[in-house]
Amino acid sequence: MAALSKHWKKIALVVVFVISLFVPVFVQNDYFLGIIILGYVWAIATYGLNILLGYTGQLSLGHAGFFGIGAYTVGVLTVNYEFPFWPSLLLAAIASSVLGFLIGIFALRTRNEYFAIFTLGVGFVIYLVIERWEGLTGGALGLIGVPYPEGIGPIQFDGPESIYYLILGFLILTIYIAWSIANSLVGRSFMAIRNSEELAAATGINVGRAKQLAFAISTGIAGLAGGLYATYIGFLGPAIVNVPTTFEILLYLLVGGMGSLSGPLVGAFLVTTLFQFLQQFEAYRLVILGPIVVILIIFFPKGLAGLWAALETRIKAMRGKGEMSGDAGASEEPAKEEAK
């Protein structure tokens, strides 16, 4: 049965992929397409947070700061220095990742709530620097006119459709990175740390170094998302770097499911698009989302992904009873043997 569900998962994946390819064909309205593009951008940022929080169990409240480092690296380089986009994007990811790595040296000396608050401070200081360094970042007025990427060969990035495919490509890349980490010994080390730092150390994992790596990957992905955001929106203001943005990304992850592969995409996409389409509720967005966060964390800390998994096991159990009672009986046997 496990094989069957794996099979279905593959089919579902292909279907989702094909749909995502045709989105610009169905969605002719640039405004709606833009909402979807932004959903993807936030999903990428959320994947970054998931690697640190979901896999490794470390809550960083400075994620938006690193998103901002990426966004402003692209913004400053392309606008102020007329640098081409592509190397700027690369630098954005590298800069935020290296900065994350360096800050991680200190940040990760702290643990638990101290780490959360340390990173909160880091995020806020990054925000202040960006807001106040007017010569470089344009201060509160921001940067205007971040260009679309230069074309590569025959491909031109000149409108929402081409940008859509660009960002879809990076989203898929990010998902691939997340998947390959989760399905490797590196990811197993991260998860061991999440489960118990003590036990992880006792199995020979270099906890400090693994956390540092997770932090650098996480901030690097945040920077990538920031860079993509900059080119798509074309305008950067400091608000996007501030602490509430971190909270929003956290919310996406929580709704989708911490530690799951699909969670960041589902959460970010669902929350951002749902509320964009329900424009009249825009003001109530956080009034509604706040209690949802609380309810989720109390009752469904694994988010939609966790709910889905629970549903799946229940369906499996029901099928097991109905069709293959013999099979189910056999699988219970070890339990009995062990109980005695």
Binding site: N183, V186, A192, E198, L199, G204
Partner: peptide
């Protein structure tokens, strides 16, 4: 302090991590 929600095998696989070398790029 094993991880209760994971399977026994999943708890165990990471035990051999200390004897392995693969890193982020291998992944």
């Amino acid at each position: 302090n094993l991880f209760m929600e994971d399977t026994v095998l999943d708890n165990l696989i990471v035990g051999h991590r200390v004897r392995t070398k693969s890193n982020f790029f291998d992944a």
